[in-house]
Design a protein around this nucleic acid. Structure first.
Lengths: 265, 265
DNA sequence: AGGACAATTCTTGGATACAAGAATTGAAAA
DNA sequence: TTTTCAATTCTTGTATCCAAGAATTGTCCT
């Protein structure tokens, strides 16, 4: 379908943005990227153009591309649109979802619950001990959280039988806010983490019952409340789109410390 | 914000696609485009990459970019998403719209009504006289229809106070289906044309009354019924995504005859 | 020390070069 | 006449080149 090299490059750059290695505000120099991926600047430029069109970076004439930082308003707006679209997807999925997909959702949900319990334990410990750092296990659990959460929602998008809808939702999520979500869950206490779990259980229940309106309502509420939590977290911790954030260099132990690990001060 | 030349080129190519000069299935050769716009292939390639990301063309490795033809399924899916999003926009707009915007809507609506009356007259004549060709006046009226229709909806998007939402809707509309809409209205009889008018009047009424749910319902119904009409028309007339359509060369009189003017046989 | 400004170095944007692989053409065979 | 297949011609993908304009540096002045 699409040209191979360029979209691979775009993919890799996008991942580094999502991972926090290229934080919002970071300048993306074509020559450096070209050297890093061992190609010439030509395909890099096209990859950057692709990311620009997707809204992940912004380019001004004769200036380096810059990783764009969503404003608080962007985040709020995006959640509002997401709630609507994921609600529609759930409504449709309630009709079209197969038993196999429902089984897969339950399985995914179980793994999600595990990740949440791990996170909740660590979060409780972090509250007792203020000096607690971001441990390897905690990052791994956070990563598992995002992965299983995405998988859970993904099944709904797949089941809605409307590719355009799922593509639109996907674009919205992959946009600028993915790394923010990852940042946010580290700020959830045990209670808030488990609330997400009950949301998902309710969604699962409505879908299993093929309750069209109920599934929609459950998903809309879930997304809206998640959005509200994210916004509250950001209002407390987010540097905002104007502040230039440090590029994260690999640590002594080789791990990357993304910008958001420093936000909780 | 964005680099100048490349997005200008993308814009021009997009317009030619919407105007039917580059019909679905048409190969876009970089060298030809470069010559046509008097630049080198480099910026052309980036413009094509941009259009690819927006979904207007598709590129395979070492093959010319091709203007993508939406399948019937694509069109149906897009209308379903549009109905949902424009419904949300209307719901929000009912709260935020200003009196000035409402006045502007009424004005736009008046011009829309004029275009429809012109079209309805020509459509009635065309039914009496099967040999009637697509006249200049009729094209102009069709063009006025799309313009004022877009303006009408645009005011709602602007008034919804959610830029992300209006951008998402805009992307959806500008995508592949813009030229199809233009094609479709030529297939509307006088009754169907006037039905659109009453839809718009109802929307205007609900917005003026600041009726949140009513505005939503009016817009959703409007988009859904429009979508159903478009789909029915396409089922009768659309060549489909697989058939290669002729590139439209300027006629003897210099006018372009887009692919859809030949569809009504 | 700190700020203004000129010289220098980077970095980008567009053009061009060239190799690899499609598309096309034309001749020969069925 | 139609089909097949090799030779030829186009077209794309990546690298490289160069000029124009940012960003940076260093110096001089206050």
């Amino acid at each position: 379908m699409t040209a191979k090299l360029v979209s691979e490059l775009a993919e890799k750059i996008q991942q580094k943005i999502a991972a926090g290695e290229f934080p919002p505000g970071h300048r993306l120099r074509q020559e450096l990227l070209a050297k890093e991926f061992d190609v010439s600047r030509t395909p890099i430029r096209e990859a950057l153009r692709q990311l620009e069109t997707k809204g992940l970076v912004s380019q001004s004439h004769r200036k380096s591309a810059v990783v764009s930082a969503p404003s608080l308003r962007d985040v709020k707006e995006t959640y509002q649109v997401r709630a609507e679209l994921e609600g529609l997807a759930a409504e449709l999925a309630a009709t079209w979802i197969t038993d196999a997909q429902l089984a897969l959702m339950r399985e995914t949900h179980a793994r999600f619950a595990e990740a949440i319990e791990t996170l909740a334990r660590h979060s409780a410990k972090a509250q007792r001990d203020k000096a607690a750092r971001l441990t390897k296990q905690m990052s791994a659990a956070a990563e598992a959280w995002t992965r299983t959460n995405a998988a859970f929602h993904r099944i709904i998008h797949d089941a809605c039988d409307n590719r355009r809808l799922s593509a639109t939702i996907h674009d919205l999520n992959q946009g600028q806010i993915r790394s923010i979500m990852l940042a946010t869950i580290l700020g959830m206490d045990a209670h808030r983490l488990r609330l997400t779990l009950t949301h998902h259980e309710r969604i699962l229940g409505r879908l299993s019952a093929r309750d069209v309106k109920g599934a929609r309502e459950a998903v809309v509420t879930h997304i809206q409340e998640s959005g509200e939590f994210v916004v509250r977290w950001l209002e407390r911790n987010y540097p905002g789109p104007d502040r230039q954030m440090q590029a994260s260099k690999p640590d002594a132990d080789g791990s990357i410390r993304p910008w958001w690990t420093a936000a909780d001060d």
